[in-house]
Structure formats: structure tokens, C-alpha cells
Design a protein around this nucleic acid. Structure first.
Lengths: 208, 208
DNA sequence: TCGCTGGTTGACTGACCAGTCAATCTATGC
DNA sequence: GCATAGATTGACTGGTCAGTCAACCAGCGA
């Protein structure tokens, strides 16, 4: 009865983080007030400063928490003896599933951190870069094995691959692409098929 | 002697816009003050409000000006009787050259508008969407001609293609990818080759 | 020379909001 | 029952900054 009592020991810190995700996603980091987060969490204004040194730090925490999980996941996949295409599929799946599981959180990470070259992007550049580097390593290995073309820089390919995924998420975030479980599954396949196999038909169709 | 006299009739409005590009690129839209723009332009604070109704409107003007040129360019390319791959190359070239010509402006457009799903991105969603739609139309046509695979949604392919380019620009903006005329030229080729031809080698190499 | 128009100036205002802090509450140990 | 530590509260402060506005000025026509 002492462990994890439902109401008696509420995790305020977690409540604040969850509320911040909602508020940041709805209003944007710059446009929202700290009091909006506190209200959403059902908590007094000052309590946020008991758990976090600043508003910025709340966003940083959200980002680092999630990004760390992703980096670990990429490293784990890379350790497996899988073909490059399947490694990339696993990464795409993870990111898409992250969005499916918590679209608000992914929206915040992409819009407020990953794609914000000024302010936050700058601060977390090292973390962001690691993802690109890990993907590039997968491409390099595939090139050495002769599975991927050598004439496309691995770093460049990594940017292309990641950029394609992030743009698809952005499409969902903006409401420009249709969402739903089946669309999410198709997206995983299509992004990998596009980047690995290309849009062009393998052989010129002799459809005569 | 009356037309375009160098110093006597300075275009303050243009000076303000150019200064805004520099300041937005350096400090970010939210982080900078209107006085920073005025200072950079060598103009009094109040003059900005003589030419623009608000700080927001300055950014909107910069975006709409440039984005309009790009949309017109895509439409023009699409009118030409070119193969899809060359159309995409032309679009990639235009965007890369835009960055080469004025990296600060492209940084501002991408970071503050295109990738800002909240705030500005929302306002100009219709404009942004048009670019995707035009690219998707090119893909659809290529699919009907049997040049591009039919199993990848055209809208999806458009997002992938545009996302790849934007991510490369972001790489330059963040200082994650090497810059320079030769890198820019290679980038044009590589992004199209990746998306159209794919990363994988056409035939499994029998390199035994 | 005078006055008008429109460009130009920058001090000022009003609103907003991140972060502080002293007071209050709650739980736990003795 | 009491004391202590940590959690919780929310009114308040200090600083910032977008946007205003009354005054000033330059050019030009009469």
C-alpha cells in the first residue's frame, strides 16, 4: 500500500512536464506563459521553479529525455547484424511510432528544438548532430559493403534521410498529410523505399 | 541624372528589410528587438512603423517576396517539356542557389517561417502548401508516364524531396555540412540522385 | 519667402511576463 | 504534541519591448 499510491503522492514534476508538452504544442514555447503551464498542471505558479530553474529548462528536459531514448535506440539497432535498409526502417519506425504515441511531444521537439537553428537548436546542437552521425555511420558501412552507392556522401545521405522523415512528421503536424495507423505504416515503408530504392522505376518500362 | 541617384534618395524601406534579414538571421525573430533592426538599418526606431504596421509584417514581407519568386519558378519549370528528374534538379538548383546568393534570407525563411509550425508557419500555411502541391504534380505526371514508381504517394514524395533539400540547407545553416561552391553543386546532384535513383546500388554487386 | 506635405526622429507608455520570496501547509520522526 | 524539512502557494518586482505620437525637417511649389 505504500508504493505508488495513486492520489496521495502525485508526481508534480511529471505533471508539470506533461502539462508543458500540451501547452508548448498548443501555443508554442515563446507564445505561452509559465502560468499557462502551471494552470494546465493544476499547480501553483511558483512550484515550477521548485522543480526547474527556468522555463527554458523545462523544454530542455523534455527534449533531452526523448532524444536520449532515440539515440540509444539507433545505437542498439546499429549493433544488430541487419542489412542497412532494415536498420533505416527500424529508425523510421521508431520516429513514426514516437509521433503516433505522443504527437504533442514530437511536435514540440521538432518545432521548438530540432528546427530552431537559433535559440534552442544551438544549445542542443551536439545532441542533434549525434543522430546524424549515427545514421551516417550506417550508410558508410553499407557503402563499404557495396550495398549503397559510394558517390553520395554518407553525411549527406544521413541528412536527406532524416530530413525526409522530419518533413513527413511536419506534414502531419501542419495537417498537410493524412494521419491514422495505416498512413503511419505506409509512411515507414515509403520513406525508406524512396531514399533507398529511389522514386524512379528500376528499369525503363517497356510498356509498349 | 534624376533616376537612381545613389545617395540622395535612399530607399529606407529596402534598407529596413535588408537590415531585418541580417538581424533575424543573427539573433532570431523572437530574440531581436525592433530597435536592433532600426540600428542595423541606420534609421530611427519609429521609421519602421512608417513603412510596416508591425514587426511581424516585416518578416511576412520577406517571406512572401521570396516564396513568391520560388513558386513562380516552379510553375515555369513545370511548363517546360522536361523529364521529371530534370524538373526536380531545376528546383533543387534554384533553392541551393538562393542559399548561395543570400544565406541569411534563406535561414530566416526556413527557421522562422517554413519550420515554425506555430506562429508564422500557421499564417503562411497556404503559401507553403502550394510548393508541395506543385512538386507533387510533377511527381504525379511522372508516375502516369511510368517513369516514377506508382506505389509511392505523390504528396508523400513531394514532402520527402522538399524535406531533403531543406534539411541540407539546415545542415549548412547549423554548420553541420561543409559549404562552398563545389559543395553546393554536388548537393544539387546528390539530393536528386538520392530521391530519384535511391541510395542502393541498382544491381547487387557481384564483387566476389 | 512662406507654407504645405510627407519623410524622419526618438522619448515615452502601457502591457506583459519570467523569476523571486516570504508565508503557509504537510508529512514524518521523536 | 511538537519540531523540522521539504513541498506548495501566489502576490509582487524588475526589466523588457512593441507600438505611439508630437515634434522636427527637407524639398518643392507658389
Amino acid at each position: 500500500m505504500s508504493a505508488t499510491r495513486a492520489k496521495s503522492v502525485p508526481d508534480r514534476r511529471r505533471a508539470i512536464l506533461d502539462a508543458a508538452v500540451k501547452v508548448f504544442a498548443r501555443q508554442g514555447f515563446h507564445a505561452c506563459r509559465v502560468s499557462d503551464i502551471a494552470d494546465e498542471a493544476g499547480v501553483a505558479y511558483g512550484l515550477l521553479y521548485h522543480y526547474f530553474p527556468s522555463k527554458d529548462d523545462v523544454l530542455s528536459t523534455l527534449f533531452l529525455e526523448r532524444w536520449g531514448v532515440m539515440l540509444e535506440m539507433i545505437r542498439a539497432v546499429d549493433r544488430e547484424p541487419l542489412p542497412a535498409r532494415e536498420k533505416l526502417t527500424a529508425i523510421a519506425s521508431f520516429i513514426v511510432d514516437s509521433y503516433r504515441h505522443d504527437p504533442d511531444l514530437m511536435k514540440v521537439i521538432i518545432v521548438e528544438v530540432t528546427r530552431a537553428a537559433n535559440s534552442f537548436g544551438q544549445t542542443h546542437l551536439a545532441q542533434i548532430r549525434q543522430a546524424y552521425t549515427l545514421i551516417a555511420a550506417i550508410v558508410t558501412k553499407a557503402q563499404q559493403e557495396g550495398v549503397f552507392k559510394a558517390e553520395i556522401d554518407a553525411e549527406f545521405a544521413a541528412m536527406t534521410f532524416y530530413g525526409a522523415i522530419e518533413q513527413v512528421l511536419t506534414g502531419w503536424i501542419f495537417g498537410l498529410l493524412p494521419q491514422g495507423d495505416d498512413h503511419f505504416e505506409r509512411a515507414k515503408q515509403m520513406v525508406v523505399e524512396t531514399v533507398c530504392g529511389g522514386l524512379e522505376c528500376a528499369v525503363t518500362p517497356s510498356k509498349t
